[in-house]
């Protein structure tokens, strides 16, 4: 099925625009002072990644990314920030030497990875013809419920464990002080 959403000429321009916005807002997540701004920039990053999924014709993942990440997880973050009333975090930053070390180590990893990946020859695409309807709900549901049925059911056990854990951790004992 041809991806009718994207004009052929515009595809690369949209790709580079989304990449630029995603990287910029990811940097702003790390460097913004207030936690609330970080959450909002992270939501922008998630929307850009959903745009990337649409470009790759993975419509199911684009929808799930919006619903689960930008919807559920970010609302949880926002709820926690408002609940704890975190406003200004002026002394949030670590010492200067730690910041420099953090940036240098992260940048070194980036340079190393790019240098290694430039040397790598990736000819796995040549093996198979790209099929564009892989990411649609129909084909993905067939794979999920045929080949990955057991992991899917185990994920529900994981959710149950996480739910019980979150309730147990968040429960207030009678002697605790009220926030």
């Amino acid at each position: 099925m041809y991806n009718a959403l994207i004009m052929p000429v515009l595809a690369d321009k949209i790709f580079y625009f989304l990449t630029f916005v995603a990287l910029l807002s990811a940097l702003l997540v790390v460097f913004s002072k207030k936690p609330m701004h970080s959450v909002l920039f992270l939501i922008i990053t998630f929307f850009c990644l959903s745009g990337h999924y649409v470009l790759l014709n993975a419509q199911f993942l684009a929808a799930v990314n919006i619903i689960v990440y930008a919807g559920a997880i970010m609302v949880l973050f926002l709820f926690t920030i408002m609940f704890l009333n975190l406003k200004n975090e002026e002394e949030d930053k670590r010492s200067a030497i730690t910041q420099i070390i953090a940036t240098v180590s992260g940048g070194t990893l980036l340079v190393l990875m790019v240098a290694v990946l430039r040397q790598t020859e990736m000819n796995l695409v040549a093996n198979r013809e790209p099929i564009s309807n892989v990411g649609l709900v129909e084909s993905l549901g067939k794979v999920l419920f045929r080949d990955y049925l057991l992991p899917f059911e185990l994920a529900s056990v994981l959710f149950l464990a996480a739910m019980v854990g979150a309730v147990m951790l968040g429960k207030r004992d009678p002697g605790d002080k009220v926030i």
Binding site: I131, V134, V143
Partner: peptide, 11 residues
């Protein structure tokens, strides 16, 4: 997954 035409990656 999209470049390889394999749905397992998206699962």
């Amino acid at each position: 997954s999209a470049y390889n035409g394999d749905a397992s990656g998206q699962v």
